[in-house]
Amino acid sequence: MSSTAHTHVAHRDDYGSRMGMWLFLFTELILFGGLFIVYAVYRYMHQQEFHLAAQELNTTIGMLNTIILLTSSMTAAMSITALQKGNVRFSMSLIVVTILFAGTFMVNKFFEWSAKIHHGIYPGSKELVMRPEGEILYFGLYYVMTGLHALHVIVGVTIFVFVLVFMKTGTVNQTAYVKLENAALYWHLVDLIWIFLFPLFYLIH
């Protein structure tokens, strides 16, 4: 227990902030966990159909997006090191790079989804409803899970934009950077989820 923390009126507890962030990440983990349960059950029930449906996804785009997210995770982590070393400018540019990677990820996602929708594969479409149940479920889950993930990418970018503003104003600086750490933690979670989504949707061969 840090007894010194109580002597200040506005007390600062970076350790506590990180702990709170981790707890929040657990809720995100379980949120996706619910979807993974649904996925696991339906894949178990319709193995063959999941296998067939997965052939229709473009593994190259999936892999490209995996590499993009992994790299963005690295630049996010590096921005902390840069700030700790006092390189505010470098730190900020690393965040900008992270955001750009996130943008690229979303552009890829957009093309991937539009291609599918163009082929008439989207929830409730005539083409999809005609297919076997397992394939309907596969694509239903594909849209829901990658969609929710994409939503998290957008939230992550928003958080990083806020952190950039805080760094500009000096609220986040070399000695007080827990906000950046927490933003990066969130971003790594987005990466972590994708690490599982990728093999589960693109690599069922």
């Binding site: 840090s2 923390a5 507890d13 970076d14 350790y15 992994l70 690295m74 590096m78 700790q84 827990v178």
Partner: peptide, 23 residues
Amino acid sequence: MSDHHSQENVHVVDYGKYIFVWL
């Protein structure tokens, strides 16, 4: 309990380590 430490112990991770992990 071991949650007694506060923000004092700062760990600066090398860029090199991150690159290794990334690879």
